[in-house]
Amino acid sequence: MAELDLALVAAFVVLARHRHFGRAAADLHVTQPSLTRQIARLERRIGTPLIERTNRGNDLTEAGAVFLPRAQALLRDADEAVRAARAAARPGRLVVGHSENLFVTAAVRELVHADPAADVTTRVLPCPDSLRALLAHEVDVLLLRLHTPVSDENLRLTTLYEEQPLLVIPVGHRFEGKESITLDDLTGEPLVRLHASGRTGNDIVRERVGAAGPSAAALGDKYELAASGRGAFICSGPYATGIRPDLTTVPIDGVPPGRVVVASRGGDANGLVTAFHTAAQKRLVA
Results as ranks from 00 to 15, higher is better:
Pro49Asp: 12
Glu3Trp: 00
Thr200Pro: 03
Thr48Lys: 05
Asp253Asn: 08
Leu219Ser: 09
Ala78Cys: 02
Asp27Thr: 15
Arg41Val: 13
Gly97Glu: 01
Ala2Val: 11
Ser99Lys: 02
Thr159Tyr: 08
Ile181His: 01
Leu183His: 08
His98Lys: 08
Leu166Cys: 06
Val104Cys: 01
Val124Tyr: 07
Val112Arg: 10
Glu189Trp: 00
Ile181Met: 09
Ala7Trp: 02
Asp253Ala: 11
Val95Pro: 07
Leu125Asn: 05
Leu60Lys: 01
Val209Asn: 08
Val250Thr: 05
Ala269Asp: 11
Ala84His: 05
Gly267Asp: 12
Lys178Pro: 04
Leu157Lys: 15
Ala136Gly: 10
Thr148Lys: 13
Ser197Tyr: 10
Leu125Asp: 07
Asn202Ser: 14
Leu157Trp: 01
Gly201Cys: 05
Asp152Met: 12
Ile204Arg: 15
Ala26Gln: 15
Thr274Gly: 15
Pro69Arg: 05
Pro190Arg: 02
Ala196Phe: 02
Gly271Cys: 05
Gly266Gln: 15
Leu42His: 13
Val261Asn: 11
Arg56Ser: 12
Ala85Gln: 11
Gln281Phe: 04
Ala11Gln: 02
Pro128Ala: 04
Ala7Ile: 02
Ser228Ile: 00
Asp79Pro: 01
Arg132Glu: 14
Asn270Ala: 06
Ala275Gly: 04
Leu94Lys: 06
Ile181Asp: 05
Thr159Pro: 08
Ile243Gly: 01
Ala63Tyr: 00
Ala2Leu: 15
Asp246Gln: 09
Ser130Met: 14
Pro214Val: 11
Ala89Thr: 07
Ala106Ile: 07
Thr54Ala: 11
Gly172Asn: 06
Leu183Met: 04
Val30Tyr: 06
Val260Met: 03
Ile39Ser: 09
Arg86Asp: 11
Val285Asp: 09
Gly258Leu: 13
Asp203Gly: 12
Gly242Pro: 05
Pro149Lys: 01
Gly198Trp: 00
Val250Tyr: 09
Arg109Thr: 13
Leu160Asn: 09
Val250Arg: 12
Arg19Leu: 10
Ala117Tyr: 07
Val273Tyr: 06
Tyr223Cys: 04
